[in-house]
């Protein structure tokens, strides 16, 4: 078996159009989901996987409408359960490329348990989490990623919930691939999708997605102000800003800080290593947020190899079959002490 998305034979010539369905897309005009859908549809042909071997599974929420718009196999399931359903599908059908599309409420609130366990098991699925920091479908309640103080329909005096940082959660859950991109940055989002699809095992991608109806501008600090995008590139010192004048350095306690490159010199900067076994530095990077530094890293935080659940299960099946021979029902029924009455 190969990676999720790189198991094509290279002979298939598809275009973005081939991944569009006859269904009318029904997100609010201006919703960031449109841009993500377009990016995914135009990236898909690159996989060179026949459409019938691709499956999109979603839970509930605005993002969860996604499978209806992909000309592949798909399931729009129930709230929060997509990673569990995808786990059953992926482990029983290693020949498929299985994708989960979810949102912040779906993945981190009602479905939090399934998300963390799919990640730690390293099931061969790619999870795209559209984070808009609000419940859109139910018309604007705060979500587990909403910042403290956010006023919404259910928090008229401001949210008092400390939010989840999705990437910190994923890293804490032993994820082997963790990345972030932005809905409107087609080029970057495509690069991240490519890396995620090429990863063996569970890949987790957070996409900053603007909900222009209930939480407009939540990510303007990076969507609009491009100088606040801390681009992570493997093997390169981490620099950002309009003139690349800023950089990221590790403190002695292992946390990351933003520094002035002119002041500290390039050699002091953290060189990004996406393939480091130890997730601590990736975690430190995930703590750089609008709240802490007014900027946020995008790109691949972590991409490491670890045995894939689906493959391990398949290996056990093969080992058991090798040892005992293919199962014989007759022999199974007669196993143990038997006696015959004539």
């Amino acid at each position: 078996m190969s990676t999720n998305g790189q198991n094509g034979d290279g002979l298939i010539q598809l275009s973005a159009k081939d991944f569009k369905t006859d269904q009318e897309v029904r997100w609010c005009p201006g919703c960031g989901d449109y841009a993500i859908l377009a990016a995914v549809q135009s990236f898909m042909p690159e996989l060179a996987i026949p459409r019938e071997r691709i499956v999109f599974i979603s839970g509930i929420g605005c993002a969860a409408r996604f499978p209806y718009y992909m000309q592949t196999y798909g399931m729009h399931s129930i709230h929060g359960r997509a990673p569990a359903i995808a786990t059953g599908l992926s482990t029983s059908r290693p020949d498929l490329s299985v994708w989960v599309v979810t949102g912040d409420g779906d993945a981190l609130s009602i479905g939090g348990n399934h998300l963390i366990h799919a990640l730690r098991r390293n099931v061969n699925i790619t999870i795209l989490l559209f984070n808009n920091q609000v419940y859109g479908l139910t018309k604007g309640q705060y979500s587990p990623t909403s910042p403290v103080g956010q006023r919404t329909g259910s928090t008229p005096m401001g949210s008092i919930d400390h939010p989840f940082n999705p990437l910190s959660v994923a890293l804490g859950a032993e994820a082997t691939f963790v990345a972030r991109s932005i809905d409107t940055d087609r080029k970057h989002l495509t690069e991240v999708l490519r890396a995620a699809a090429g990863h063996k095992g569970a890949a987790f991608v957070e996409v900053y997605q603007n909900c222009n109806v209930y939480n407009d501008g939540a990510f303007d600090f990076v969507r609009e102000d491009k100088e606040n995008r801390i681009r992570l590139e493997h093997g390169k010192p981490i620099r950002f800003g309009a003139e690349d004048e800023k950089g990221v350095r590790l403190r002695v306690d292992g946390s990351a800080e933003v520094v002035d490159v002119a002041e500290v010199g390039e050699d002091a900067l953290l060189v990004h290593d996406a393939h480091a076994d130890e997730p601590s530095i990736a975690f430190a990077l995930s703590r750089l947020t609008r709240d802490t530094v007014g900027a946020a890293p995008i790109g691949v935080f972590r991409d490491v190899a670890r045995p894939v659940y689906d493959e391990l299960l398949q290996e056990q099946i093969e080992a058991a079959t090798e040892k005992s021979g293919p199962g014989e029902l007759e022999a199974l029924l007669h196993s143990g002490d038997t006696w015959t009455i004539s």
């Binding site: 399931s77 569990a84 359903i85 059953g88 599908l89 482990t91 059908r93 498929l96």
Partner: peptide, 13 residues
């Protein structure tokens, strides 16, 4: 919940 979800996902496949 995951137990039945995974079983349903397998059935879909």
């Amino acid at each position: 919940i995951a137990a039945v979800g995974a079983a349903l996902g397998a059935s879909f496949g």
